[in-house]
Design a protein around this nucleic acid. Sequence first.
DNA 1: TCTGGGGTCCTAGGACCC
DNA 2: TCTGGGGTCCTAGGACCC
Length: 420
Amino acid sequence: MYALVDVNSFYASCEQVFRPDLWGKPVVVLSNNDGCIIAANAEAKALDLPMWKPLFQNADLIKKHQVTVFSSNYPLYGDMSQRVMETLSTLTPALEVYSIDEAFLEVPETEKDLQVYGQQLRKRVHQWTGLPVGVGIAPTKALTKVASRMAKQHRDRSRNVFVIADEATRVACLKELPVENVWGIGRKISQRLHARGIHTAWEFTQLPDVWVRKELSVVGLRLKRELEGIPQLDLEISPPAKQMIGTAKSFGHNLEDKGLIQEALAWYVAEVAMKLRRQQRVAGKLTVFLETNRFRPEDPQYTNQVVLKLPVPTDDTPELSHYAKEGLERIFRPGYRYKKVGVWLSGLVRPTAVQQHLFDPDPQPRRSQLMQVMDELNQKYGKATLRTASAGFRREEWKLRQEQLSPRYTTCFDEILQVG
DNA sequence: TCTGGGGTCCTAGGACCC
DNA sequence: TCTGGGGTCCTAGGACCC
């Protein structure tokens, strides 16, 4: 048996843990750049605030109901997430961290009463972190997703824990679940299923295997089996190696100046290269892309990307930065107002698998020591304390908008919560 | 002032070559 | 002159997730 544990309205709940004055009041959290509403607590959801819609389009509603608004504070959420995962790992032999606010657990075989086990998970996470979680328990991962959804819908009855352990419950849940809400079935696939007259998860499981295999590939077939209660997906306890790592963020303002865009890009490269080193990989390819603001059709539009093949795979920030700059030079066109720049690293391999360049073998041992020192310092004193000169000193001119940021309660001593 | 997410993987189709 | 399959590599865009 598996359990899926997810934190209710994770970002909003993290903010509320440190603000008892907001308990019972509507709270929302914004996307990067304070653009869209991406999380809302139960009180805010009750106001029908639309998710993934720009904040300014809902300004009236926010004001009228005195909704408290936060910029996203990822250091805080990341830290709270780690605490939740550590708490959960005390109650299970095996745990898969599925996302920042969700984990799949193996239910210990000694647990006889699954409802009681679910309540125990909830209680301990709440005691140790202050966060409310829901629990879905079922024989397959896909079914735990279904159960978790039921736990939310039937909050009062089941007290945030829902168990699918027998055939009658499984069938009843699937008959109730619209097919577009099944984990792994998105907008496009559900359209195709609707066209065939399939509207519930149950109807999906009644389709012939051959059709599912042909139309939705092995992925669809695996999902069908999972919903039937036949496990196809194991827990991924150590996450599989990534195929690519990257970042792309919008600027606080649209930018025309190449120098500023270059600075932002160098900053993102440093972030991504550090992730790369942490995963003990080197990158063989680097992609740079650049975009204007597509929501301003009155502005001239331009978007482009370029892939650079590196002569020797590397994890060295200055070197990657150099290639990123070269990529930007190639695709930058003056006269546009740019909104976003991004960098992706791919062709990731272990450093030991790298073949040195035949005519220019320069392993640069001192360079990798420098990177190690840089990572340690930045870990200790904050992101980009030590950085390459190309990352510049004008961050104020391009950085994300974060006007409603909460303090770093858990990761910075100066901003720790004071009681009294 | 002026607002519009971020991350990862997959697939279709084109270019090129044998 | 016209026809043929099949492989690799690359890229753009699609799809899904939270």
